[in-house]
Design a protein around this nucleic acid. Structure first.
Length: 227
DNA sequence: CCAGACGTTGTT
DNA sequence: GTCTGG
DNA sequence: CCAGACGTTGTT
DNA sequence: GTCTGG
């Protein structure tokens, strides 16, 4: 599944790649985005595609407190249309989560050790995860925007590393995913399929294990060869 | 009817 | 072992 | 996802 | 808010 990812690119590149109309975020380079942290998310507004910072871990609008978000960091594509926590966001609050890589921990055959791998698309291209978001009003009057990343079964490449993978939207389905006119789950879930383009993966340092680490060295290959 | 949960991954 | 926090 | 805590009474 | 279980 997807519990860590990277976004180490210039904001201009994100703006160009996703045709953004508004950018409500500062320049940043992230090498270890972890649940509960703030990260950039793209969603559709009246004025066009907007990028804004949200908390990773969905807090549905009806939640009594924020803590439910700690559990809702992923949503299974196979069932999200039926889940109370995701159903409404699927219809009305879909988003794209920009990234340039994600981490999966590959278990050794004996199951005793887990090796972090960084997986990238193409030649390390910028891409978008399929996500859902929501806005939660806190008792003190503030509001919290949060998101979750949708998962699916792995494609052939990722299956050698892990048994789930995040949904990476193909470029030509991104507009449909963000289109507010589309609200029928039957039209949306077919977009949530395993990525079918080229991917690469390489081993990285276990320094990535700790969410408090976030430096360029985390994405350096520690083994000389790409898979 | 009301009360209580609302999730995933991974492991067994 | 299981839950919480980042 | 992984890391780190997991508790109470009482005192500062 | 909405669904499931008692």
């Amino acid at each position: 599944m997807c519990g860590r990812y990277t976004l180490a690119v210039q904001l201009d590149l994100i703006t160009d790649r996703f045709l953004l109309k508004r950018v409500d975020a500062k320049e940043m380079f992230r090498f270890n985005i972890a649940p509960t942290q703030q990260a950039p998310v793209i969603y559709q507004t009246d004025s066009g595609r907007t990028l804004t910072m949200m908390r990773w871990g969905l807090v549905p609008f009806w939640a009594k407190d924020e803590s439910i978000g700690n559990k809702l960091i992923n949503a299974r594509s196979e069932t999200l249309a039926e889940k109370p926590s995701f159903k409404r966001s699927l219809e009305r609050k879909r988003c794209i989560v920009p990234a340039d890589g994600f981490y999966e921990w590959k278990k050794s055959t004996d199951g005793k050790t887990r090796t972090p791998m960084r997986i990238v698309v193409g030649q390390g291209d910028l891409f978008g995860f399929a996500g859902l978001w929501d806005r939660w009003k806190s008792p003190d009057g503030g509001s919290v925007e949060s998101y979750t990343i949708i998962t699916t079964e792995p494609n052939k490449f990722v299956s050698s590393i892990h048994n789930r993978m995040p949904v990476i939207l193909s470029r030509d389905t991104e507009a449909q995913w963000l289109d507010p006119e589309i609200t029928d789950p039957e039209l949306l879930t077919p977009l949530l399929v395993p990525y079918n383009g080229e991917m690469k993966a390489y081993e990285v340092s276990t320094s990535v294990n700790s969410p408090s680490n976030d430096s360029p060295s985390l994405i350096e290959p520690i083994a000389p060869e790409l898979l």
